[in-house]
Amino acid sequence: MASAIDIRQLTKVYDGKVNALDGVDLTVKAASIFALLGPNGSGKTTLMRILTTQIHPTMGLARAFRYDVDKDDDKVRKIIGYVPQEMSVWTDITGFENLLIYAKIYGVSSLQRKKAIWDALQNMGLEDVANGPVKKYSGGMIRRLEIACALLIKPKILFLDEPTLGLDPSARKAVWENLRSFKKEYGTTVFFNTHYMDEADLYSDEVAIINQGKIVKTGTASELKRSLHGEIISFCLANNGTDSMHPSTAPLRQDLNILTKIRALNFVNDATVHDSVMDVAVENGEIAMPLIIDVLRSEGISLQWIRSTRPTLDDVFLKYAGMRHMQDQSGYHYGI
């Protein structure tokens, strides 16, 4: 598939000292939704500002549909829409007027202007409030108006810098549903920055994780999740009545014995026991589960419950963005 954005060894140093981007390589497929995920200060906005021709890279190259964003900035500007991280509409006029001014700036011909504006309003579900002053809009309505302004020219690439920052879950959902239907209709490439994992997970075709100006991981959300470990299966071992009154060494030895057997199984990466819950890390739970149950049965152990946990994008993010290794929360000691 053709690429919409190509980035090679892009570097940005602010004021000769802040290394905001440190050799970024990225490719974004045309007509896909691409999420750039990273913690505060990781360089997301900097990258987007270079791609949208606002600032010059220190080194490296970035293209949007063959146009160099640094040298052919005039051409790039005509094919992109952009919503900055901060609020970006005039609040002392109406929503419709905001769109009208942008339509004029972009030279939407007077014949098509009305239709283009109402299309954009409709795409973002704002028809009813279009003629009200933006001052009275809610945060979610303002965000949708900003996106509507960017959709006006039916851009080939839409850049959104944290499009749902500060919105409640239902407003976020509304924004994304509108965006997806627009994307479907016009085949727009959507490039967005976020630090909401679930957003990247739910709405993007591909994710790149950026940390300290470097891309540390790319792939689809499910690829990234699989790259951590398959899943964790937790077994709550039923008390067999032999060791309930006085903790003796026999059950412990038995536990260790079982662990060794389970660890020896194919498809099993690791196993631990904690307070009569055994966590087994496996690549593929469907295949491994019957084998493990067989071993437990043969040892005469019955089970109270079984639970399987798959890694979330949070785990991926925390691992690659290198903040802390969240083994505890990722399911190893799950249950009690």
Binding site: T52, T53, Y82
Partner: peptide, 14 residues
Amino acid sequence: RETGILKRLLVAPA
């Protein structure tokens, strides 16, 4: 400038 309006204007083709 404090809001994003200027950034957005500067991304327009003018």
